[in-house]
Each structure stands twice: as structure tokens, then as C-alpha cells.
Amino acid sequence: MIDPIVVFVLLLGAATPILFAALGELVAERAGVLNLGVEGMMIGGALAGFAVANVTGSTALGFVAAAVAGMALSLIFAALTQYLMSNQVATGLALALFGLGLTAMFGKPYEGLKAPSMMAGPLGLNLMIWLGLIMVPVTWWFLMRSRAGLILRAVGENHDAAHGLGYPVRRVRIGAIAFGGAMAGLGGAYISIATVLQWTEGMTAGAGWIALAIVVFAQWNPWGALAGAWLFGGVTVLQLRLQAAGVALPVQLLSMAPYLATIIVLVAISARQKFGRSGGGATPGSLGQPFHALR
């Protein structure tokens, strides 16, 4: 039978990569930047983290390297969109493809190797799960309570007004993009170092896209991102368990489940916005728009 506690522990693990990536993207989008390259930054982090962990034997160093790699990839995006004014959607898609291709090339030597094992933390959960959970209130507090978070939200809500008040729109956005990159890198490395324990080409398997969807699902609220990550982590774990338990459902249908759930939730949210209650909506006002300062 399926033990709820076991399922919950597995769920926490399955949710962690998307939670990291979603929190990072959430901050970037709150600053008005739509970075669709989450998948590329995650896979970059997955390879860099795995490689460094494998060579040094330290998973901690691996995660540091993953954050750096994710951030480096995101800074390419930042330079293109913030200085060269390229289109955010196209650049983000390109970054996703770029990350997948780049890691496929450099990842060859690491195929078939094994990752060093993670140290267990309190309650038998590893430290990265704990860090992910801690990042939820930290991100919330930063966005909703700190001065810097207020400025970040202001930049995302109305960049012209923020510029008019003298806030450095571009610098704030670059910072948010870099944070998003580092978080995506950590999420990716969690997959290679803590979940799969090896490197495979394209191993993030769409987690970055799910993270993007979760940001909308969360209505740009960190607690919502946690709920979303748990929901999708839960569906993933459940479908694996159901398969293992030999439930007579086609495997394909079960593997589809998390993605179907994503679509259903997104439709429900936009339907709610269209037909009623929520006034104003939570979408940052300047999301995805390029900012040109006149001097």
C-alpha cells in the first residue's frame, strides 16, 4: 500500500528542484523580467553541480558551482535583454535551447559516473530540501517587507514611474535575473546530485517549464510557489507509486498527469480572472516589456 508519510517525504524531494527554480523566476518576474530560459539554466546547474561534486567529492561545492553556472547563463540573458534590448521571450527560449545543447556537449565525459552521496540533515531530509523550504519565507519577507523588495516590485509594476522616482531599473532587473539564474542552477543540481545521482543529457526533462507555469499558478506569491511545487511534486510521486503498485492505468496517461494538472490549474486561474472577483490581477504591470530610459 501507499504510505502517506513516505509519499510526503518523496514529494518534498520531487518538489525541491521546481521550488528553487520557481522562486528564482518569481523574483525575476516581480522585477518585470520574463526569463523563459529556466530550463536552460537548470540543466546548466545540473551539469556544473554534478561535475564539481564528482571531481571534488563535495556535494556542497557542487551546489555552489551549480548556482554560479546558473547565474552565468542568466547574465547572458541579462546582457542581451537589458543592454542590447533583445526580445525577452525569444531570448529566453534561445537560452533554454542553448543550455540544453551546451550541456549535451560538455556533459559527455561525465556520463555513467556516480555522484557523491548527500549528507542527511534534520529529520532525515537533506539540507537542500531545508534550504528550499527556508527560501519561501525569506523570499516572501524580502519582497513584501524589505525596502529593496519594495523597489524591486515597483520596478516590475511600472518601470517608467520607478525610473521617474530615480530607481535604477536596469540594475535592479539584472540583480533579479542573476538571482533567478542561481536558484534555477540549484534546482537543476538537485536533480543530478540528489535525485538521479548521475548525469544524463536533457535530464531536467521539462522541470524548468513547470517552474514557469508554477509562477503564474502562484500568482507571483512565494507561498503559492510552495503550494504549486508540492502539488506537482505530489502528482509526480503519486504517478510513480501508482505505476509501481501496478494500477491498471496506461503508463503514458500517468506520466502526463503533472503536465495535465498544470494546464488545468492555469486555465482555472485565467477563468477566474476573466469571470470575476480578482480585481487588478497579480501580474506585474511591466512584465516582459523592454525598458528604454531617456536621458
Binding site: 525596502r147 519594495l150 523597489i151 516590485r153 515597483a154 509594476e157 511600472n158 517608467d160 514611474a161 520607478a162 521617474g164 522616482l165 530615480g166 530607481y167 487588478g280 497579480a282 506585474p284 504591470g285
Partner: peptide, 30 residues
Amino acid sequence: PRAARASGVAMVFQHFSLFDALTVAENIAL
């Protein structure tokens, strides 16, 4: 503008420079 504000210049814009999604207090704090 921050330097201008620090030296005592304040401005009310023609097109409101407010942030719709934020509260009155947050707008003022900004």
C-alpha cells in the same frame, strides 16, 4: 531624482507615477 529629492525638490507628475498593484503606503514609501 533621488538627489533632487534629498535637496528638497518634490514633483507631482502629469501622468501619475504610481504603482497600481502596491498600496498607498508602499507608493508613498517609494
